[in-house]
């Protein structure tokens, strides 16, 4: 890595490089790479290697094979279900909100308000978010009580529970939708007015404009952003943990319990569990980056 740095410097500025400039390039970049290596890349790689080792350090595939037990498989399953549900619903609702703000002919103050609020809400995650939804949809929450006293609907007798799959999904949407809005607004801005006008002049209906022009251009952003939302939900733990304790068996909570108290009774199986998480979020992010590159071609 060090060779790369100096090579690039020399290449770019072989002629111009004075002795005074060199230390700046070095001092600027080397700490960054050293830091990233020590506190991001190496710890992660070390964990990934651990997933393929026995406790004594020999190579093995047993840890990966050991992932195939009911409790772990079901944790991955629930995690993926919650992440997919909150990502897809977040994408759909986020799209409608962003579309309304960008192209809805709404009063001018609405768009900046939505942007600011989305910035806040997409960062209002973790433990406090869980508290907010317990106060809203918990057994004595405001919405639960109001539904009962005004409409006679007992939410909890319908099988709903804030500590369940749907409870968690509805809660996650609180940061998923705003994130989608923030990602999609620039993409919607990129839909040029001329395209809409050209389509209209050629006699296209609104539906035709969307199916033949807008969605073909937008789908990489839409799908890509959905992937990002998926990874966002998949790695989240604080909200779920504060909401459900350890009653909902999702991968991050299982991993948390494993780190705290070795609940799997096998440290190396814990590494394999973490490797599984990395593989899943990496796949969804690679898809996102690949789709982003495709959509950027059109949205310049």
């Amino acid at each position: 890595m060090v060779e790369n740095v100096s090579a690039a410097t020399m290449d770019d500025h072989a002629a111009a490089a004075s002795r005074k400039r060199l230390p700046l390039s070095w001092l600027g970049v080397v700490p960054f790479f050293a830091f990233a290596l020590l506190f991001l890349i190496w710890p992660t790689l070390d964990l990934m290697i651990g997933a393929f080792q026995t406790p004594t350090g020999e190579f093995t595939l047993q840890n990966i094979a050991n992932l195939n037990q009911d409790s772990i498989i079901s944790a991955y399953k629930i995690s993926i279900q919650v992440s997919v549900a909150s990502a897809v619903l977040g994408a759909v609702f986020g799209f409608f909100l962003a579309h309304a703000a960008v192209m809805g002919n709404l009063p001018g103050w609405m768009r900046p308000t939505l942007t600011t609020f989305s910035g806040v809400a997409s960062n209002f995650a973790g433990v406090p978010l869980a508290f907010a939804f317990i106060a809203t949809l918990g057994r004595t929450g405001l919405v639960t009580t109001l539904l009962y006293s005004f409409f006679g609907i007992n939410l909890y007798s319908t099988g709903f529970n804030i500590l369940s799959f749907w409870g968690l999904t509805i809660t996650y949407l609180y940061f998923q939708i705003p994130l989608m809005v923030l990602i999609l607004m620039p993409a919607l801005d990129g839909l040029k007015k001329e395209w809409r006008e050209a389509a209209a002049i050629l006699g296209a209906t609104k539906v035709q404009f969307w199916t033949h022009v807008a969605f073909p251009v937008l789908w990489p952003s839409l799908l890509g952003a959905t992937m990002l939302l998926f990874a966002n939900a998949f790695g989240a733990i604080a909200t779920a943990y504060a909401l459900t304790g350890s009653s909902l068996n999702i991968v991050p909570i299982l991993l948390y319990a494993q780190i705290r108290g070795d609940v799997l009774h096998d440290p190396n199986l814990g590494y394999a569990l973490a490797l599984g998480m990395i593989v899943i979020t990496a796949l969804s992010n690679i898809t996102y980056i690949w789709l982003r590159a495709r959509s950027d071609r059109w949205l310049r």
Binding site: A36, F39, L40, I41, W42, P43, T44, D46, L47, G50, L228, A231, N232, F234, G235, I237, P252, L255, Y256, I259, G270, Y271, A274, M277, I278, T281, A282, N285
Partner: peptide
């Protein structure tokens, strides 16, 4: 990368 690697995995790596 920090958006790809979940925080819990990073801290797990630190502890190891």
């Amino acid at each position: 990368l920090p958006l790809v690697i979940p925080a819990i995995v990073i801290v797990f790596g630190y502890l190891r």
